[in-house]
Write a protein that binds this DNA or RNA. Sequence first.
RNA 1: GGCCCCAUCGUCUAGUCUGGUCCAGGACGUUAGGUUUUCAUCCUAAAAACACGGGUUCGAAUCCCGUUGGGGUCACCA
Length: 565
Amino acid sequence: MPQVVTRFAPSPTGRLHIGGARTALFNWAYARRHGGKFVLRIEDTDQRRSSDAATRGILRSLAWLGIDWDYGPEFTTDDARTLGGSQDGVGSYYQSERLDIYNEHLRRLIESDLAYPAFETPEELEAKRQEAIAAKVGYRYDRAALRIPKAERIARMDAGESHVVRMKMPDEPITVQDKVLGDVTVGPDELDDFIIRKRDGFPTYHFAVVVDDAAMGVTHVLRGQEHLINTPRHVALQRALGFPTPTYAHMPLIFNPDGSKMSKRDKDKAAKAAVKAAGLQAPPIGSIDQAEFAEWLEDKARQLDPERLAELAAALKVDLPEIDAEDFHAAGYLADTVVNFLALLGWNPKTKNADGTDLERFDAAYLAKHFDLSGLGKTPSKFDRTKLLAFSADDLANMDDNAFAAAWHDWATRFDPDLVARFSLADMKLLAPAVKPRCKTLRDGRSIVGFALTADDAVEFDGKAIHKVLIKGDRKGLETLRDLRPTVESIEPFTPEAIEAAISSHAETTGLGMGKIAQPLRVAVTGTSVSPPLGQTLAILGKPSVLARIDRCIEHAESQTPEPA
RNA sequence: GGCCCCAUCGUCUAGUCUGGUCCAGGACGUUAGGUUUUCAUCCUAAAAACACGGGUUCGAAUCCCGUUGGGGUCACCA
């Protein structure tokens, strides 16, 4: 029994898409489950669209999710672990550095007449394609190049004439044995002689993937269902080259809630809609010029780079949908939460908890131990952000205070530096009990402690809250607040516990309910009727700040008329 | 359009292979109560699905056929 080897093979043309992250996760889990190896290979055969920056971003996203690779590009994680790098004798894990290998196999195929050079220009082919469309028939390459004698074809190719290389497809149906979908048979009429080496000398995806999977000993291929139609081509190529066919499992796709395919373009789509809704004609940010802006707005396929898109969204005050792994990181989700939720899209552990409910909360370690092909479903799933949010809130609530504070601090260091400037890790530990149960993501933490980010003399008093809590009923609330001030001033030390104790004893002596005491104080220090428990709220501000806010509020409330404006 | 894939609560799904224990279970969301100094949490309960039509069978969510619906794919992208 050969060792299990799986791989994830992203093309470095953008960031790690959430669907790609799931593919990587499942391949990783399958290898780990079976004690095999997980390979990361960079499919950079599209010279025009690939970039090193994209590669680095993808590696970073994978590492964030906790997906580590045994072989592949070398990468040092934020916590200084080194991944990949091991060459294992198979050469580079960048396809652009493996051209000699592809060419060697290509030559073999051409000489044994299983592939052949073809000399039509892209324009000629496009014209034929349009003819086919006009005649409402499916387009297939007409094998015109095969009418040129073999020796002549090869001579022209060797003489340097511009050409592509095509695979000569066998004239028989090909059956793919898929672990999820069962046997899928495609007739010979459906598969034409596809290109396996481009005019620029680079192999196409189909060829490179087959050669590399064989060279790297890949035994199992888990990929999205959009690849299903490619598989017969790959099988044909494997047969021609004398390679074994790995086990295939095609996974269901992930959709948006509206049923459309979750796509990289969705963020641009949302931003364009927001621009149009706002009726903007000119770009609201400086980094994009008028002409580019207009062009982007008009062309549905046009995309802005992630940074400027984020800038634009901020200027428009809209949230863009999270699509890339990086988006979920920035939105304040824990990697474990994303992994858990992602795994449930298309896979199910089919296991019950002790209380009879279905098991659905688990981590990457669970996957590494239990992931199996039989748990993969066939139906596409819609990405439900509400449920993800519920998972996130739950995971955050289940952390202990110190772990929460550490995660929050780490996150803010990268995504919200202002917050770190105001609160140290120690502050965050103090805030944790107040913030943790109130936020669904780490990003939510900011709004919960928002009252502490405002200067004492800049607190905005919510008119409705002021009226309801302080003015209404003969200004009783305002009196309560005045009575309370000396009590607050006398609290020592100014800790959450001491503050709670002082307030509740004040409530007892005055005979007023806690509600009548707490709300005026809350409005006075935060400006609104909503905040974490008072002890924590006041302790974080500190006594001088609290007293200053009470005084300012009393002054403000005195100037208000009994009826709301 | 050709070819291919899919079809259980609003959503993610268990159950389908090995028909009966399923007038279909869980989770998120929703609704109604309750706990709580506000908010959030938390607790309890409820509503909510086998796409449709044939067939096979004593019996079908489960097997077969068709219809409808959804999706994928038809690049010198991956």
